[in-house]
Computed example of a mutant assay.
Amino acid sequence: MAQLPTLQPVSALVIHIMARATAVDALINRVQQRLDTTHPIHKEVVSVGGLGSVRLGMTIQEAANAAQISFVVSPLAQSEVCQYYLPEVYDAQKDGPTAPIDGIGVMVINDQVIRIDIGPGSPIKTVSGLGIGSTVEEVASAYDGQIEVTPNPYTEGTSLTLTPAAAGSNLYSLVFEADPQGKITQFRTGQLPAVTWVDGCS
C-alpha cells in the first residue's frame, strides 16, 4: 500500500502564504519607488516671489542649497548675461546629480535667479491652486481685476499677466500662457521685465 504524503498543518500554510504576500508587497513598493519621479520640489507652490524655498534674487548656488537639488546649464539658447538652468536630483552619498527634475526652468541673469518657468506636465501649482491644465476663466477668477490678457505672438493663444495689488510687489509678476482652447500650457514667475520675455534668454 502506497504511503500518503505528510500534510502540513493549516496554520503552517497560512504563515507561508502570508510571508510570500509580504515579500511581493515589498517588491511592488520598491518598483513603485523607482518609477516615481516626483521630487519634493514638485510639491512646492509658485508665488510672485519664487518657487517654495527658491526665491527670486538668489544666486543659483543659494537656490540649489535651499531646495537641496543640483542645477545644470540648459542647452537652450543663451546669451552672455542670461542663462537657463535645469534642476536635477542631488545625491549626497554620490556627491552629484542622479536624475533630471522635469518641468522647471530657472532663468539667471548676472548670477541672480530672475525668473522660474513651469512647463507642460509639471504638477506644480500656484498659491491659488492654478497649474498646467487650468483655464483662462479660472486664472481671471483667482486674480479678479489684476489680469491683463494679450495675444501670444507665436500661437493663437493668449498670455495672462498678473499685476499684483500688494504694495512693493510691482517688481514681480506671474505670466500664464494659454492655448487656443483656453487651457494653461505653461506659466512663470519672475522680475519685470524678464518675466514677460516670450523668447526667454534668446
Rank of each mutant, 00 (worst) to 15 (best):
G157C: 00
A140W: 00
P153D: 11
T150P: 01
A167T: 15
A142P: 12
E156N: 07
T161Q: 07
A166K: 08
A165F: 04
A165Q: 10
N170W: 14
S141E: 14
A140P: 02
A166L: 14
Y143A: 06
N170K: 08
I147D: 02
S159K: 04
V149G: 01
D144F: 14
P151Y: 07
S141T: 14
N170D: 15
Y143R: 03
T161N: 03
G145H: 02
S169A: 14
L171R: 12
N152V: 12
A166R: 11
S141R: 09
V149D: 07
Y154D: 10
I147S: 10
T163C: 11
E137D: 12
V139E: 01
E137T: 08
Y154P: 05
Y154S: 09
A142F: 15
G157T: 04
G157A: 02
P164T: 04
P164Y: 01
A142W: 12
L171S: 15
S169W: 13
A166Q: 15
E156L: 10
G157P: 00
E137P: 06
V139L: 02
G145A: 00
L162A: 06
D144A: 15
T150R: 11
T150H: 05
A165G: 07
V149R: 07
Y143N: 05
V136D: 03
E137W: 06
Y154R: 14
E148W: 10
G145C: 00
Y154V: 15
A166P: 09
T155P: 04
E138C: 13
S169C: 10
T163N: 12
Q146P: 01
S141Y: 07
E138K: 07
P153R: 07
N152W: 08
A140M: 09
G157Q: 03
T161P: 00
A167K: 13
V149A: 08
Q146D: 06
N152L: 09
V139D: 01
T163L: 13
T155Y: 02
G168P: 09
T163H: 12
L162R: 02
P151Q: 09
E148T: 14
V136K: 03
L160D: 01
A142L: 13
E138Y: 08
A167H: 11
